[in-house]
Design a protein around this nucleic acid. Structure first.
Length: 572
DNA sequence: GCCGTTTTCGGCCCGACTGTTTTCAGTCG
């Protein structure tokens, strides 16, 4: 998958051209294609091989040629040409908040700035501030931008961002009980990582809400505040996260949350559609000439364009608008469709909660069943269960099942071993459900055939790529082969809700669906309070266009048991 | 550089905030 690589090349070209003061629309064309590429579910190499490059919106003759050149030769003349004469440091400074191409251009031309050190120097010695159009405050803002950038500009996981936003909103709700607050942006779209948080509120007393927002306890710094909007920083661990609030009147709440939910690509596509109908969309509503014709609700905004409401998770301009126009939107798996969690660790292995506590909590979620999947014996580091300990745990499952009145399946998270199953056949027989997982790291070792060789004795393949969002790369595995074999052998692929995993990803899930793969969406909880993590997995699944009928643990108990008995019948 | 039921040329999403200005440019989302 070279989509991201190409996207960053086009992004860099855009940066360089912007610095050089090229035509703004040409620059935007490069930015657009970069965005399209990084959001695209399909592998650009496949599209290229099938000579369909120009069927992708944003790719015309010129950019198609450049992609062709890059995929053929590994180089792109335009890239080298654009980068020529632009110092690397200058380009990277463009990622800093408050520093734009115009500022850098002036510093480059008038003060001879070529490196980051040069730039810091002209900030400090006052020479930048003395230039026409610059000033002391501007310099202060740039310094602040640099500080924030250096403190770490990486995104935080949705698992960290979610509780934070819930806390902010509930504190504002206390003061403004009748005001609606909606978190928008990538959080509402359930992206796996969040760059910043956008909250929209409706109120007639905008200034009061803004004031309450910037004086919250959790605010470490106010970046800006006006009559209707404000930006603040709030600490998250060692870093800090930007939170933006906008307050609008009730009659444009819908268009406002629509606008700030994005994605940018989705909105641009919508506006183009509106333009063709002689309409204009902004965050304040849909307008025909000067007359406002919608804005109160998102449904009305989409309605004026002849579209049904589109779920936020798929607003990426990756085919959802076309599908909506054709009346062919998918029926996405819903947040309350999951009937049971099939990946939970108890305190028999490396979990923190007892099976009883987990079962009680699961009842609160209105689950009809759960499966306890402690680690198998080979996973010593995670308290892997010896055969006798496993037998003891199984008895505990049966006891709690009766006591709590919740169906509890006896499961295992089975380590992959090249020699075969981690337990003898008779022990596996005593289990209801077997989930395969790979936790080992062998450099350059391809796990594809090992995983497939385990398929005859497993039901589910958990976190199939092994990636950790915070850093660890996925292990080597050929996903296309896995998808094909999983579909053929009725092996369920897991969409793991653990925020640092979210594996399969949205892109991989959407790809897997094309092969006819079915999914289980689970929490991978290590204590009872983490059962709610499943919602992040559902978010990923929705982003991957996964439908309710694709999800095995959306089945009610009786049908799920039937599937366990019959659905898993093998050819052999 | 892309794109087309207004166009193969001439458009290209749009508004708030900030700071430096005295009517606006730059930056951001």
């Amino acid at each position: 998958m070279r989509n991201r690589e190409l996207a960053s090349i086009f992004e860099r070209i855009a940066d360089a051209l912007e610095f050089k003061g090229e035509n703004v629309f040409k620059i935007n064309a490069y930015r657009k294609v970069a965005r399209v590429l990084s959001d695209m579910a399909e592998d650009i190499e496949t599209v290229w091989k099938e000579k369909r490059l120009q069927s992708i919106p944003g790719i015309g003759e010129g950019i198609a040629k450049k992609i062709d050149e890059f995929l053929t030769t590994g180089k792109m003349k335009k890239y080298e040409e654009a980068m020529g004469g632009v110092p690397e440091d200058i380009l990277s400074l463009m990622d800093v908040s408050s520093i734009g191409p115009k500022t850098l251009r002036i510093a480059y031309d008038k003060l001879g700035v070529r490196t980051r050190e040069d730039f810091v120097k002209v900030l400090e010695d006052g020479s930048l501030a003395s230039l026409q159009g610059m000033g002391e405050k501007k310099v202060q803002n740039i310094k602040k931008g640099l500080e924030i950038y250096e403190r770490g500009h990486e995104r935080i996981s949705i698992g960290e961002a979610f509780p934070l936003v819930e806390e902010i909103i509930s504190s504002l709700k206390k003061r403004f009980p009748t005001t609606r607050f909606t978190p928008c942006g990538s959080l509402r779209r359930m992206k796996e990582t969040i760059g910043d948080i956008d909250i929209t509120a409706d109120s007639k007393e905008a200034k009061k809400v803004v004031d309450a927002f910037i004086s919250m306890e959790s605010v470490s710094e106010v970046l800006g505040a006006g009559e209707t909007k404000a930006s603040v920083l709030t600490p998250v661990g060692k870093r800090s996260l930007q939170v933006d609030l906008r307050v609008v009147p009730e009659d444009c709440y819908g268009s406002c949350i629509q606008y700030f939910t994005g994605s940018k690509a989705h909105n641009i596509h919508l506006r183009t559609l509106a333009m063709k109908k002689g309409l204009k969309i902004s965050e304040y509503g849909v307008f025909k000439d000067e007359k406002k014709i919608a804005g109160r609700s998102e449904e009305m905004v989409y309605g004026t364009l002849g579209l049904p409401w589109i779920p936020p998770e798929i607003r990426e301009d990756s085919g959802e608008i076309e599908a909506a126009l054709e009346g062919a939107l998918p029926e996405l798996i819903g947040y309350s469709d999951i009937k049971g969690d099939l990946h939970i660790h108890s305190n028999y292995s490396d979990g923190a909660s007892s099976i009883y506590e987990i079962a009680k909590k699961a009842k609160e979620f209105r689950y009809e069943y759960i499966c306890i999947t402690d680690h198998s014996q080979k996973a010593r580091y995670a308290g892997g269960l010896s055969p006798s300990k496993l037998a003891e745990r199984n008895k505990e499952c049966e006891r709690v099942e009766k006591e709590v009145g919740l169906r509890i399946f006896k499961g295992i998270e089975l380590e992959l071993t090249p020699e075969g199953p981690d337990y003898p056949e008779e022990i596996l027989q005593e289990l209801d459900l077997i989930t395969l997982a790979i936790h080992q790291r062998k450099k350059d070792y391809d796990f594809t055939s090992d995983a497939i060789s385990a398929f005859p004795y497993i039901h589910i393949f958990a976190h199939p790529t092994g990636r950790l969002i915070s850093g660890r790369e996925e292990y080597k595995i050929d996903l296309k082969t896995i998808f094909k074999e999983a579909a053929r052998n009725n092996i369920i692929l897991e969409i793991n809700g653990y925020p640092d995993r979210l594996d399969l990803s949205d892109i991989n899930s959407r790809e897997a669906k094309k092969y006819g793969v079915k999914f289980s969406i689970c929490s991978d909880a290590h204590n009872k309070d983490k059962l709610s993590q499943t919602r992040f997995g559902i978010g990923v699944a929705r982003r991957g266009w996964v439908e309710k009928s694709d999800v095995i643990n959306a089945l009610p108990l009786e049908e799920f048991e039937k599937w366990l008995r019959e659905g898993r019948k093998r050819d052999d």
